Computed example of a mutant assay.
Amino acid sequence: MPLSRPRSASPSFLALLLSSIIGTAAAPAFAADAVLTLNTDRVQEDTNAPALDLALTRFAGMASGSYYWPEGLLAEQLISGLSSRRDRKQQALPDGLQLLSSYRRPYGGSERAAVLIDGRSGDVLAAALVHRQCGAGSSSAGCLDDQHAVLSIFLRPGFDRAKAQPLVAWSREVPEKLQSGEGEKIAKTEYATMDAAHTAARAVERPKGFSAVVPLYPKSLIYRTAQDALSDAKARRVLRLQTTDSMEKVLAFYKQLSPPLEEMESALDTRSGYVAGTRKGVAFSVNVKHDRDMPAITNIEVEISE
């Protein structure tokens, strides 16, 4: 039997988390130019994912792109860009905004991220990645060199681009390891608004030979780096996907198919789960799991039995 999990916390949790770290805006120790260490390790009381990670998945939805790796979820790349604990910083800004930043391990700051958060609601208002445009359309080596970076800024609908200038200023603070020689320069700055055109899921293109009888979770995309690791033969019966939805939602989709799966069985715990059965004579299984350092992202593997 699946193990039950508590409901998600309200978006205001992140605001409470931040206020417990920075205190009130009036406190003199937290002036607008103060830089503090952010403790994002605190986990919500009723979920396995940190509050900041969940705020980022709400902000980015199913948006994807080639920043740190080819055609990956934007939310996952933002979380990865903030993953270095020793490099996490926080800056209090006017109007109750907070600028949070860090580096992606273990790249010494050549790949880094920052977010602007409303300290009252906990909502992400804007986010930025400094990256090497790894993936389609970049250099022949796969990524731009250390002297040329791209700044991608993502805005919540209705958020004024001018208010995102702290992210531009942050991007120009070149990490120490990148200051030798010619040093890093932002070669290009690009903006995108996180409206439905960017955050909505798109239909997954099935690999050649993958049976159309097997339903694919509608709010997902191909986990490109994992899928490309498969042989051509295995890719005809195994499809690796990702989503920002919970494991429960993914499994519920398959358990509620109409007509229902024949000989269905399923299980779920806090880290992984599965459902298996037969549909129109095709036996298949769906496995879901959370990576230890990425609990806000659900990895899905759909496998057709041989």
Rank of each mutant, 00 (worst) to 15 (best):
L82D: 04
S12I: 11
S102P: 01
A136D: 14
L144G: 02
L100W: 13
L52Y: 14
A127P: 04
T47P: 00
L17C: 03
W69A: 13
I22F: 10
Q90L: 15
Q133C: 00
G108I: 02
I79E: 03
Y68T: 07
S84H: 04
L82N: 04
G142L: 11
H131V: 08
G81N: 01
L99G: 05
V130D: 06
R112K: 13
D41F: 02
G109H: 02
T57R: 08
L82Y: 02
T24H: 10
L151T: 09
N48A: 13
Y68L: 12
D87Q: 14
M62T: 05
C134M: 10
T37Y: 06
S140Q: 14
A32R: 07
L100A: 11
L99N: 08
A51F: 09
L116H: 10
A32H: 13
L38Q: 02
R132V: 00
C143D: 04
P50K: 03
A32E: 12
G122H: 11
G109D: 12
L129R: 09
R88M: 10
P94L: 01
A34C: 11
A34D: 09
S84P: 00
K89P: 01
C134I: 07
S139E: 14
E76C: 00
H148S: 15
L151S: 10
D41C: 03
D146V: 13
G135N: 04
Y103I: 00
L52Q: 05
G72A: 15
G109S: 06
A113V: 07
I79K: 01
L17M: 08
L97D: 03
S64G: 10
T57W: 03
S139T: 15
F30S: 14
P50C: 13
G142P: 11
T24A: 14
Q77C: 13
Y107S: 09
T24K: 07
L74E: 11
Y68C: 05
F59K: 01
L129K: 09
S139V: 03
T47V: 01
L97P: 00
A127R: 06
Q98H: 03
S152D: 13
N48E: 14
R120Q: 10
H148A: 12
F13H: 13
L74Y: 12
A114K: 03
S20D: 14
S84I: 00
N39Y: 03
L56C: 04
Q133H: 15
G142E: 06
V35D: 01
R105K: 05
A25L: 08
R58K: 12
C143S: 08
S64C: 02
P50I: 08
D118M: 04
R58E: 12
D46Y: 05
L151K: 04
I153T: 14
A75G: 06
L125Y: 04
F154P: 06
Q91G: 05
Y103F: 15
S140W: 11
V124R: 02
A32C: 09
L144D: 14
D118Q: 11
S12P: 00
G81H: 06
A127T: 12
S110I: 14
P94V: 11
A127K: 03
L74C: 11
S64D: 12
T57K: 07
P70D: 15
V35F: 07
R85Q: 10
H148W: 07
S20N: 09
D146C: 00
G119P: 03
V35W: 02
G23F: 06
D46A: 06
Q98W: 01
L52N: 11
Q44A: 11
E45R: 13
Q98T: 01
S121G: 07
A141P: 00
L14S: 12
G142H: 10
